[in-house]
Design a protein around this nucleic acid. Structure first.
Length: 803
DNA sequence: GCCTGGTCTCTACCC
DNA sequence: ACGGGTAGAGACCAGGCG
């Protein structure tokens, strides 16, 4: 029988004739698209009996529950481990995946059943778990060719005969190489309010395929009739037959909108590779397009902290994919107008083209990392991108559990129990020269490995132990058995050594080569998962939740950082600041080197010289500082200048103040700059956008206890027929008037320049932001705002501050 | 009824 | 929809005062 080498793209299943069939979506070595069917996989779950229960009797009770449409096919007694303990369980196999939920409910009720386990794992993923298949990796398997079933958009169809084995030849080959990527975006008609699919048509759709196309294809509706447009969209997608579809926010907007419009026209949005299948909601708010990987790039953008308003334009600008000044910029409410006006329509077209180019540009920034995340976590690309960090790690943990013969715990509702976290030192306020920043490398994962922390190694109350056989966490007293190595330790050790190996390989590869990029993205993906493990244990919804474990980790962390502080002081190094796993000390190269050596030797934890500040400035506040690095870069941490909920003008002013003070030491010049900004404001020489304040709406407006400006603005938007949803950033300005602030907020796009309350921006934005830094040097509000000379008091204040 | 200070609510940040 | 620690603005509210 022939052997096939293929790359796994995705897995789904269908039920035919009352039986499930696994559909493995793949690409073959000779670049064909293929489905590989597997008919012999069956859904199952485990039943964990109460201690001393008669398994045979339990089995016959379960058999009696057998459902006609999905009978119990077999019940098998198996030896497993559950949170590290050996257990006997029943493996119950049935026929139709959708009925497993029903079995879970009924079996849980049976007398003698402690828990029903692994009944909540989606069938297709269950197959990947059991067959140890990782998406985007390459495998070899024996297959038999079949006729491609009608309607399937693939070149080949096979039946899986042998268990696939990973092909090591492909390990360091870019998994995306040769895959067809299509970017798309739609424009929807509107009239100064949010579009409604019952009323507003789709007017333009753009798509662009790589490889193969030099430029995007732009399609337009006929007037306000989008029927033909949507039909053409489906045809054009099929023609391009992409493996990966990328868009920006398409899971929440484009797909639902297109689906709704198609439904109105009675058209099927049949863009999938399977006949008659439309895009449909999947896990984690993601939209699944069967046979293709639908990747919403917005999910990556969410993790870019530096960009606060995460629109496509802003993200593409930040990443240098499409500079704002080089593109057509339109606001969403202008789309209808630009469509109706024939002279403006070409600009709308260009706007869409720029969006498509930006989207494709972002794809090449993000997909390589996404592909590694998929290869490492084991979740298909489209899902891993949509999933949060906790779930990404959890899928990998589930895979490890299957390999180790461990039963996967259920996801259970738990109340929140908080515990003590890390230490943050009080900073030494002022301007300091030559300060070294030392960082413990992956402190929490290393604590977990060193002390064998985990839910399976912890000594529970009442359990016997010998003191010499356990590690005891300081302060909290939780104990962990030294042997055998626990679940987390095993996985983390593998992650850490895997990452070490990759970093070693990287040293022998040209930094500009594709292989280097691949390795770098892979080590980042591994690091992400490793670093998530501590937070994961403290997450009440985690399957492997263990509050005491998380608590023990932070306790060890506190002890370690205290020890490091003490060691630094003993060496005569002044400690300026520290947070969790970092220390800011006076930079004396010899003694810093000695400090590093001692910490590593005496504690067994690696600490690194992360950077050296030529100058660094602290106020009294923790978690805020400004530093000037040796290469002339300014780091601003925690200050208003890096927060999204301050006006751009206040942020810029503060950043400039920090820069002047750090680079020149001239408070004078910084004051001058602030005064210029204030006079510019008073003259009316400003733009509404630089005064806009953005805040996230975290819940529906009615669910707020306290009134707030951004909620007011959101309510005004709603009155104008603009949909606002939790998670949205609301941009508002403060306008003139009396009464509390929240009564004077207005959405920025409805506000006229003349109504802006300039006084508010001076008193509550620019001045406080500037004073946060200048205040330390004795500068007063009066001096920043005053019309005349600096007073004697200001002068005295300044010299006092400059000590 | 108005002012004041303490507390609560909310958001966004740091690591 | 991974954790705790933290800053800061403004709303909210009780108590003092006249």
């Amino acid at each position: 029988m022939p052997s096939l080498t293929f790359q796994v793209l995705d897995v789904s299943y269908e039920v035919r004739g009352g039986k499930p069939r696994i559909i493995l979506w793949a690409r073959t070595e000779d670049d064909r698209r293929a489905v590989i069917f597997y008919d012999d996989f069956r859904p199952y779950f485990y039943v964990l009996p109460n201690p001393g229960e008669d398994l045979g009797q339990l089995a016959s009770m379960i058999k009696r529950l057998s459902l006609p449409k999905s009978p119990v096919l077999s019940i098998e007694e198996v030896g497993k481990k559950y949170i590290g303990r050996p257990v006997k369980a029943l493996k119950v196999t049935t026929l139709v995946p959708a009925y497993v939920r029903e079995y879970r409910e009924e079996v849980s009720k049976l007398h003698g059943v402690d828990e029903v386990l692994e009944a909540d794992i989606p069938f297709a993923l269950r197959f990947m778990l059991d067959f140890n298949l990782y998406p985007l990796r390459w495998y070899k398997a024996t297959v038999e060719e079949e006729r491609v079933p009608p309607g399937y958009q693939v070149d080949k169809a096979y039946r899986l005969v042998s268990r696939p084995e990973e092909d090591p030849a492909f390990v360091n080959i870019d998994p995306l190489k040769g895959l067809r990527v299509m970017a798309f975006d739609i424009e929807v008609y509107n009239t100064l309010r949010s579009p409604d699919p019952r009323r507003d048509p789709v007017i333009m759709i753009g798509l662009w395929s790589y490889p193969g196309e030099d430029e995007p294809l732009i399609m337009e509706a006929e007037g306000k009739n989008d029927r033909r447009l949507i039909e053409r969209f489906v045809e054009e997608v099929k023609k391009r037959d992409p493996d990966i579809i990328v868009g920006y926010n398409q899971n929440r907007f484009d797909w639902p909108y297109l689906t709704a419009r198609a439904k109105i026209h009675g058209i099927k949005l049949a863009v999938a590779r399977r006949p008659g299948v439309e895009p449909s909601p999947g896990l984690y708010g993601h939209i699944s397009v069967s046979g293709r990987l639908n990747v919403d790039l917005f999910d990556f953008a969410e993790e870019i902290r530096e960009v606060k308003v995460k629109s496509l334009e802003e993200i593409a600008d930040y990443l240098g994919v499409m500079p704002k000044e080089k593109r057509v910029l339109l606001e969403w409410w202008q789309i209808g107008e630009y469509w109706d006006d024939p002279s403006k329509r070409p600009l709308l077209r260009k706007y869409l083209i720029d969006d498509i180019l930006s989207t494709m540009g972002l794809a090449w920034k993000f997909l390589p990392f996404g592909a590694q995340l998929s290869q490492v976590s084991g979740l298909p690309l489209d899902q891993v991108v949509a999933a949060s960090v906790g779930f990404r790690l959890e899928w990998r943990l589930m895979r490890e559990a299957v390999k180790l013969g461990e039963l996967i715990p259920n996801r259970v509702e738990r109340g929140e129990e908080s515990y003590t976290g890390a230490i943050v030192l009080k900073p030494k306020p002022g301007l300091h020269e030559n300060v070294a920043v030392l960082d413990f490398a992956s402190m929490y994962p290393n604590i977990m490995v060193k002390y064998n922390v985990g839910p399976d190694t912890i000594v529970r109350p009442g359990e016997p132990y010998k003191p010499e056989d356990v590690y005891e966490a300081p302060e909290v007293g939780h104990k962990f058995r030294k042997e055998p190595p626990g679940f987390f330790k095993k996985i983390l050790e593998r992650f850490l050594s895997w990452r070490r190996m990759i970093r070693k390989q990287m040293k022998n590869v040209d930094p500009d080569s594709p292989e280097y990029r691949l390795l770098d993205e892979r080590q980042k993906a591994i690091k992400l998962l490793a670093n998530a493990s501590y937070g994961y244990m403290g997450w009440p919804s985690a399957r492997w939740y263990c509050r005491e474990c998380a608590e023990a980790v932070t306790a060890w962390g506190r002890t370690i950082i205290r020890y490091a502080i003490q060691t630094a002081r003993r060496l005569g190094l002044e400690v300026y600041y520290g947070d969790t796993d970092s220390l800011f000390v006076q930079y004396d190269p010899g003694r810093v080197e000695e400090l590093i050596r001692r910490i590593e030797e005496e504690l067994g934890f690696e600490i690194k010289l992360e950077k050296v500040y030529r100058r660094v400035f602290f106020t009294e506040a923790k978690k805020r500082y400004a530093g000037l690095t040796s290469d002339g870069k300014i780091d601003l941490v925690g200050f208003e200048a890096v927060r999204g909920d301050w006006s751009e003008l206040a942020k810029e002013t503060q950043a400039r103040v920090a820069e002047v003070v750090l680079k020149t030491g001239s408070v004078e010049e910084a004051v001058k700059h602030v005064r210029e900004v204030i006079s510019r404001l008073k003259k009316g020489d400003f733009d509404v956008k630089e005064l806009t304040i953005w805040k996230t709406l975290t819940r529906p407006p009615s669910r707020y206890e306290a009134r707030q400006p951004h909620v007011t603005a959101a309510l005004i938007m709603m009155r104008h027929g603009i949909r606002v949803e939790p998670g949205m950033k609301i941009g508002y300005v403060i306008v003139k008037g009396s009464g509390p602030l929240y009564t004077r907020a207005k959405p920025y796009f409805l506000a006229k320049k003349e109504e802006i309350d300039v006084e508010y921006y001076i008193d509550k934005q620019v001045v406080p932001a500037a004073l946060r830094i200048l205040g330390y040097f004795g500068v007063t509000e009066k001096r920043l705002k005053g019309g005349g000379q600096a007073s004697l008091l200001d002068f005295l204040g300044k010299t006092r501050g400059g000590r």
